Simulated scan of single mutants.
Amino acid sequence: MKGIEGYLHTNVRIKQDAAMGIGVMIIFIAMVLTAGIVAYVILSTGSLLENQSGSTGTQTIKEVSSGLKVSTIQGHNSLGLIDKIVILITPRAGSPEIDLNGVLIELSESNQKNILKYSSSNWVDGRTGLTSLFDVNAFSSASSEFGAIVLVDDDSSCFQTTPVVNRGDSVMLAINTTAIFGGINENVNIVGNVIPEEGAWCIIQFRTPSSFVNPILILQEE
């Protein structure tokens, strides 16, 4: 009887040890799987963040290096009022082509703000020179439109109906300030932006002189 009891006791113990071993193995496998899942999540998150960071960096560089820049803003003095202004723009160094049909000009003084869009009826080819800049038909009579005077355009991309500005081009945006503000007086702050569809905006910010002596006034320079 003792032999049988010893055998049974030993057999039960072996089974218990085997069960414990299987349990430990199951726990170990679960830990390995959990560690694998955690590692996968960490790697996936890191890869996603890296891609997002790269995309954000590329977009930021594109925004900074593309768009338009203002070289100068000039005004025409007519009987003590600035009745017209021109904004000389050029593309930034890394800018893609910019269609003036998609460009807006925001212009405001203390009492009024206007948003202007391009008018193809007020396009002027000035590549061969102009005898009187402020007398050309580039200044729209509408308070919500601006015209364009093309000065440099070697590939003829900036045409009347397809006014595309690209590298090396110089274009004047023509604004009839009489139509917008009834003219601009002395000591007036003018602010605004030239807003392309893509890329950096151009800032318009100047204060008119305290007295208008000359017929042509330099209002803002780069």
Rank of each mutant, 00 (worst) to 15 (best):
N122M: 05
R207T: 08
I14E: 12
S210T: 14
S71Q: 15
E50S: 07
V194M: 05
T34A: 15
E50I: 09
N187H: 07
G168L: 01
D153W: 03
I105T: 01
E145C: 05
T178N: 04
Y118T: 01
T177I: 08
S119W: 00
Q160I: 13
N193H: 15
M31C: 06
V12L: 13
N11L: 15
Q160P: 08
Q112D: 12
V171S: 00
H9Y: 12
V150Y: 00
V124E: 00
M172H: 07
A19S: 07
E63T: 15
S141L: 13
M172F: 15
C158T: 00
T72Q: 14
S47T: 13
T34Q: 09
L49Y: 10
T208K: 02
Q52G: 09
Q16K: 10
G129W: 03
L219G: 02
S144P: 06
Y40I: 01
N193Q: 14
Q16N: 14
S44T: 11
N101H: 05
R127L: 04
A35S: 13
Q74I: 15
M20P: 08
N166E: 11
V213L: 12
T208M: 06
D99W: 11
L43I: 10
N176H: 01
Q59K: 12
N193I: 12
E109D: 12
A30R: 05
E109G: 04
S44C: 10
E5A: 12
V32F: 08
I4G: 10
A35Q: 09
N193T: 14
I149M: 02
S210V: 10
N114L: 05
L116R: 08
T208L: 03
R207K: 10
N193V: 14
S71Y: 15
S156G: 08
A18K: 08
I61W: 11
N187P: 00
K84G: 03
K117P: 05
T10Q: 15
V164N: 07
G75V: 06
I73W: 04
K84S: 03
N11S: 15
L130T: 03
I184G: 02
V152R: 08
T90K: 03
H76Y: 15
I180F: 00
S108I: 13
I87S: 10
I22F: 14
G168T: 01
G67N: 01
R127P: 03
I216G: 04
T60S: 07
E222S: 09
F206Y: 02
L48W: 09
E221T: 13
P91L: 01
